[in-house]
Design a binder for these strands. Sequence first.
DNA 1: AAAGCGGGGAA
DNA 2: TTCCCAGCTTT
Length: 346
Amino acid sequence: MSFENQIVKWYINNKRELPWRENIDPYRVWISEIILQQTRVVQGEKYFNNFIKKFPSIESLSSADESEVLKMWKGLGYYNRAINIHKTSKKITNTLNGIFPNTYNELIKLNGIGDYTASAISSICFHEYNPVVDGNVLRLLSRYYGLKNPIDSLKGQRNIREIGKKLISKVDNPGDFNQAMMEYGALVCTPFPDCKSCIFSSKCIAHINNEVDTIPVKSKKKKPKERFLNYIVFIDSKQKTIVNKRINKDIWYKLNEFPLIESKTEIKNIFTNSDFKKLVDNSHLTLKKENEKIYRVKHVLSHQILYISFYQINVKDLITSGVHLSNLNNYNFPVPITNFINKLLI
DNA sequence: AAAGCGGGGAA
DNA sequence: TTCCCAGCTTT
């Protein structure tokens, strides 16, 4: 049996029962594909269920506030995915008459949908023969064919896409084939695989040449940059504090935070009045030194290492238009700030 | 072509 | 610690 038919057969017999496989509603498939970008199935599954429960249809999603969509995304990371999902839902509802685009060429024009997602949706929902190229496929095919082009290079990825194109052209169900490739990469041909249980081990070039641990090849190695974030958590006598929204093109775009001073190194000394008068509009606030607490935490992202300090400072004056501490859970904070609030502030 | 963008789980 | 996950967008 050919590779492409063998892996589809394996998929039919071994696939996981997952909520987005209950049907092929393009809305649900689309949401699942966006959630699962750079995200493991086990992590994304609960987000998918919560998201679909909150927004059962594309109309309900399109009429929601952006903050409500971000709330469902909180903790999942790469928050532009949520913003793009919201944008695209509005476009489909308001300018495409609510009709989901049903071809690769139309899908790839939408915000947040690239080659992978357009291929996935068009193959699973509309039976188009577009091969997906994700991390699983790159790993599986580069091992099976013994390819040593770096998989993080455009050339290496284009090559594997061409191979995928030939393979998918010979199967009956392109959606099943694409999901089979990813499922096999996720369950069998993993980064540290158990080749004894692999049905392709007798034909896998990497296995035959004992190169499974060196294929796929990756070229890029970038050192994460270090940043020092100092959050000032003002608290007045009425238990109110100041909350801002991140508006710059940076991490945590459109999420909330406390007043921030970013520094080149870790700040040891306590802030003075002049330090934090720069932070807030109502600079009549005065520092009250007693009851001050400092909490430091290291938070690691893929591309940055964050050294975060929270300075909890009581102020004498009342904060105008502040947020009560018991009301903070209505705001979308990044994970390290949520942890601080839950563990130490409330 | 390269950089920027989260968070968590596994080895 | 290091790797990497159903990638996309901007520079």
